[in-house]
């Protein structure tokens, strides 16, 4: 199959999976507990790595930009610089990439193992719909938890930036925080929360599709996992560009 046909085929498969989830939401189900469990696994479980990533990204942003800002005499705006970068771009994208690596791989490996050991077939034979039982809770948990994780990463990024500005460059914390407050707008925050909703959909859709379409035994599980992480990471970055453009158009964010 040529690459374009394969791409269209995969896109169709993921779209059908997501459509199945959407239509399934309007039918009765009893998987509320599973959604909470997945939220815990995805949200609380990913919190440490997301906070660490946010903290050090904020810190390194200030570390790299402060001397340049100082050169131009605008080092009091370091907070604005780090906050807008984090809230608009780095927070959502880095959080999505971290979650894609941790959760996308886990979802794909888990579902893939269930496919090759016939557990998915057993589930269907015993009267469950794997879409409702397995895919919907994971997808909903990702869509709900990714924006929250992003906000946590943003906050810790700003704390990291403030820490570096204060301890390494001796900037007053109040100056840094005032700059942050002046720099970040409501539209920035809204844009930074809308993006992860789509990223959650991308990561969940691709990881579940790759897991459920696993073939070729345990080797196939490894292949699906790699594909899930690589593809969801790439699509997060590609979608980020188009989402950024769309958010700019709607809110006028970033337009000077």
């Amino acid at each position: 199959m040529n690459p374009i046909a394969k791409f269209v085929d995969e896109l169709q498969e993921v779209s059908l999976l997501l459509w199945g989830v959407v239509t399934g939401l309007f039918r009765p189900h009893r998987y509320g507990g599973e959604i909470i469990r997945q939220m815990d696994l995805i949200g609380v479980g990913s919190l440490p790595i997301v906070l660490l990533t946010g903290f050090f990204t904020g810190g390194v942003l200030v570390l790299q930009t402060f001397p340049t800002l100082q050169y131009y005499g605008v080092h009091n705006e370091a907070g604005r610089s780090v906050a807008t970068s984090l809230v608009r771009e780095l927070g959502p994208v880095l959080t999505a990439l971290m979650v894609s690596g941790r959760i996308g791989s886990a979802i794909s490996a888990e579902l893939g193992s269930m496919v090759v050991s016939q557990q998915i077939d057993a589930m269907r034979a015993l009267g469950s719909d794997p879409l409702k039982k397995l895919v919907t809770p994971r997808l909903l948990a990702l869509i709900f938890m990714l924006p929250l994780l992003t906000v946590a990463a943003d906050v810790f990024g700003i704390i990291g930036g403030g820490t570096v500005a204060s301890y390494i460059f001796d900037q007053d914390v109040n100056v840094f925080l005032t700059s942050v407050r002046n720099g970040v707008t409501t539209e920035d925050v809204l844009g930074g929360i809308i993006k992860p909703v789509f990223f959650g959909l991308i990561i969940g859709g691709i990881a579940c599709h790759k897991g459920l379409s696993t073939t070729g035994g345990t080797v196939g599980v490894g292949r699906s996992t790699i594909n899930a992480v690589v593809l969801s990471s790439i699509w997060v970055i590609i979608f980020d560009f188009f989402l950024a453009k769309a958010i700019q158009s709607v809110f006028g964010v970033g337009v000077i």
Binding site: S117, Q118, D121, A122, L126, G127
Partner: peptide, 30 residues
């Protein structure tokens, strides 16, 4: 499928569930 029972090649038990929960699975789904 409610009329049919299926025994899979390797058992296809759900790894994350105990024997009790595996056997009870159909009842819980119903």
């Amino acid at each position: 499928r409610k009329k049919i029972g299926m025994v899979f090649q390797e058992g296809a038990l759900f790894d994350s569930l105990s024997v009790y929960e595996n056997v009870a699975y159909r009842l819980r789904e119903q």
